[in-house]
Design a protein around this nucleic acid. Structure first.
Lengths: 180, 180
DNA sequence: TCGAGCATGTAAATTGTTACATGATTTT
DNA sequence: AAAATCATGTAACAATTTACATGCTCGA
């Protein structure tokens, strides 16, 4: 059984505690979304697939007349998740349109290139604000140490990147000043 | 006309000079692949679409009896590419399976978590070697300054990341030594 | 002559996003 | 009473990977 990326992150959150599809989406959006996102269009169909495969179990848990289904990971699901987790191999894919634009930025004016560099900078500053807000809030996953390690990585990387793009901005400005 | 990511990178390389599909793939693999990859399964069909849309022109350029088609960007194609390039907005998506595994690493033994951290380290060291080899070789795109900026980003990031994961390794080892 | 590299392509499957649709509950 | 949020889902589309298939050319 090969788990898709979405299946794996869902199983991971269900391994911590039972949740509804809606709650899984919230968990992803509050934590892994920077490096592993998931949309409702994937989550709900995938929950059904996982249930058919016996990796999770569904339970009706309505709030009043509003229907709600909570999923619980099974022993088989836990085994699958552990197997994925224990394998030290991993995929790492990046689709970075700003680096791509910068790559071809010789075809831009100085002003346009500068705008690009500043837009990129802004992204890192925004992330930094968001991640620091998580950092000072209550722990996302109680008793778990590694989510904090990942958060620390996010903050450290954002700081490094913000600084890198700021110094790139200064270099571009200096270059423009010397060449008319 | 909305250009797909693959279309855009192809048009970008064709804006620098005419190439065959094979040569576009080589260009991508030698330069943008770390942040923007493309496979033959996309490139060849997309070249035909771009030709139908009038953004590129095909020309037969066989080597002996081996067929070969070289594509040249048209004025319309250049306009489309410039329009994409001049827009300072960008997408940035990451699918980082190693951060995801680290996020759930409380479910792993110390040894397994350490193996994961070391595997991640190895990736950055490998990239660093590859990027430094490009850095000392002949310039990939003659007369263009920004590809070197992107390369510098890649090298600086790889150095930062290698260091970060090394210090994470030391922290894990220290933690394991203090807690039995 | 054999293998590496040049060169082009298709088909199937997977993966994922976006937009749409519906309705209940809670907060302002 | 309206708006935000909770909650679930589908359909259409877009993007992408992988595996397969074919055949030429050049250097060892």
């Amino acid at each position: 059984m090969t788990l898709s990326g979405t299946a794996v992150v869902m199983l991971g959150f269900l391994a911590l505690r039972p949740r509804s599809g809606y709650e899984i989406k919230q968990a992803v959006d509050r934590s892994t979304r920077y490096f592993w996102s998931a949309s409702y269009g994937q989550i709900y169909p995938e929950l059904r697939r996982l249930a058919r495969a016996g990796l999770v179990e569904a339970e009706d848990a309505p709030t009043g007349a509003r229907r709600r289904t909570v999923y619980r990971i099974t022993a088989a699901g836990r085994d699958e998740f552990q197997a994925w987790l224990a394998d030290p191999g991993f995929g790492l894919e990046v689709r970075d349109e700003s680096l791509l634009k910068l790559f071809f930025a010789d075809l831009l004016t100085s002003e346009q290139a500068l705008a690009l560099v500043r837009a990129r900078q802004a992204v890192h500053h925004r992330w930094l604000g968001q991640l620091r807000a998580i950092d000072v809030g209550p722990p996302f996953v109680g008793g778990q140490a590694f989510p904090d390690v990942v958060l620390a990585y996010g903050i450290d990387f954002s700081e490094w990147a913000a600084t890198w793009w700021e110094s790139m901005e200064r270099r571009l400005i200096a270059r423009d000043a010397s060449e008319p």
